[in-house]
Simulated assay, not measured.
Amino acid sequence: MKHRILELYSGIGGMHCAWNETNMPGEIVAAVDINTVANDVYKYNFPDTNLLNRNIQALSPKEIQKLSVNTILMSPPCQPFTRNGKYLDENDSRTDSFLYLISILDQLETIEYILMENVKGFECSTVRNIFMEKLKECGFVYQEFLLCPSTVGVPNSRLRYYCIATKNKNWSYKTKPEIMRALPKTYATPYSLDLIIEKNIEDKYLVPDKMLRKANLFDMCYKDSRRSCCVTKAYSHYVEGTGSMYTDATPEYLELCFKRANSFEVGSEEFVNALKELKIRFFTPREVLKLMSFPKTYTFPEKISRKQCYRLLGNSVNVKVISELLLILFQQ
């Protein structure tokens, strides 16, 4: 069976990449997003896909039905369910489009499969409860997950909520009432970052002096590291909690340099100078794409700035995790 897929909140096309990764028969019939910069990147990589720059609330059930799609892949806005978003849940206007979609789900008679991704915290929300009740009402069976890319062999932390749902009576996956924190099969230990690190990186990726003053807050990675922190849309703009930094130096030499730096006043010029030889830098957008399991052929248009790249990646999905979930969702 060749599946016809509607990709909502399509962003830069992480879901599209994940579908391609499965090698299952099907096509993205339409992709929908209101972010024009993300749409430029999506169109650059998938020029033949019908990309709609639309507010999802402007899509009528009749219009969706005309697409003859049987699958919805989506990653609704996560800010209403995060600390920075003040946990406003259903009272946040950014949930309106998803709540609208939930409200019309019973009118989308051709939809048989759904995959939804969101931030950790969604599982505790009122919106999640509304979504689950609607799935049951429409005859879907579903499974919820909280998964990190490291569980599928990717050296990156990006814990996210996922829900897969189907009306297929022959679905062989045995659902459980609890939220699963692992997939049914086991995966290899995460590979080392050496496999994704680029050579001869431009100096523009070096951490600037004003940020080196806060170097004690950095999460540091090396070529032999088998882990890295989640890159957020604020990466390269803020220091703490936005993603890891990288150095070619060994952990031993880095420890020595930090020990020397900390003999001075933290944040002082002497402190910064003691760390400069480490050439601590940001991961490049290309390296972050690899950490998020995008294919080698995926690229950003030249007109997209580095800051825009990080913002778009911070809002995207891990392709490997999604593709593994899709394989489960469509198994007979």
Rank of each mutant, 00 (worst) to 15 (best):
R128N: 08
I64R: 03
I72S: 13
F145E: 03
E287Y: 07
A274P: 01
S192K: 14
E137S: 11
E63P: 04
D96M: 03
Y113M: 01
D203N: 11
M74R: 06
I5S: 09
F81G: 02
V317M: 09
K259Y: 10
P80L: 04
S316A: 10
P190I: 00
G13Y: 10
S93D: 03
I328N: 02
K2R: 11
P149Y: 00
E137M: 11
C221G: 05
S157W: 08
N35A: 10
I304D: 01
M245S: 01
I102N: 08
G13I: 05
E255S: 11
D248K: 13
I197Y: 01
N70C: 09
Y100S: 00
P149K: 00
F131S: 07
C138P: 06
Q57I: 14
L135F: 03
P76G: 00
L326F: 12
N50W: 08
E269D: 15
C221Y: 09
R213S: 12
T82P: 09
L327W: 01
L108D: 01
K276C: 05
Y222L: 08
K134H: 00
N170A: 14
T71W: 01
P177W: 04
N318P: 11
T232R: 14
L135V: 01
E112V: 01
T49M: 05
S172P: 00
D224T: 11
C138V: 06
W19Y: 13
I130F: 08
R260P: 06
R286T: 14
T250P: 05
T49Y: 06
I114W: 01
T189M: 11
Y222S: 08
N315G: 07
V152P: 02
S244L: 05
S236M: 14
N53R: 11
L52D: 04
S150P: 06
R94H: 09
D40E: 14
L88K: 15
P208E: 10
F218N: 05
A30F: 02
M116C: 13
F122H: 09
P61S: 09
F330P: 04
P190Y: 00
R160A: 01
R83Y: 14
F140G: 08
A31S: 15
S244R: 05
T166M: 04
